[in-house]
Amino acid sequence: MSARDDVLAAIRAALADRPDAPEVDRAYRTRDPLPPGADVVDLFAERVADYRATVTRCTAPELETAVAAALDGAPRVLVPDGLDLEVPGAVVDADLSATDLDALDAVVTRATLGIAETGTIVLTHGPGEGRRALTLVPDVHVCVVRADQVVPGVVDAVAALDPVRPQTWVSGPSATSDIELDRVEGVHGPRRLHVVLVDG
């Protein structure tokens, strides 16, 4: 017998007692995950900052200036196709190798949504967000999130996302707690995460 047949046979034998599959009560999906009276967008900004990401809030007309300020003079900036935002001097990704990406200082992208409950941004790596390596190799990630993209909780995010697309959930810059369980920012992913939150 193949390993597949053997493992499946072992599972069926192990379940010979035909256990009941318990019902799952999904009432949790209807509960508000946020503290009473919290504003979704304010809380998102607060919790993103809580994990030592930098948050800038601006209006749509101020966006280009805010992004330029967030880049803080980084000389070599990368943008994905379809960013729909003018970033002067930026290189547009054209199948750059990992080594090419490693030579760049910063990347500017958009996101698919933000989660207030956890201060998380979610990338699904379509137009404006770029393939996964883009937001990983450069040391600075400037991410533009519109206020209307922020959802209250993880439950809302999971319901809204397309599982077939690759996803990266980002909560603050790269970090580790591996030495004495003290949190230290900055290991392999971008050491600086700058979220530009566009109101209105």
Partner: peptide, 24 residues
Amino acid sequence: PRSSTGERMNPYTSTWSGVTPGDG
């Protein structure tokens, strides 16, 4: 994440479904 590292969310969560052409 809350049980493991004591964070509201861990810094990175990756999901992928088989092969994504041109990515990864």
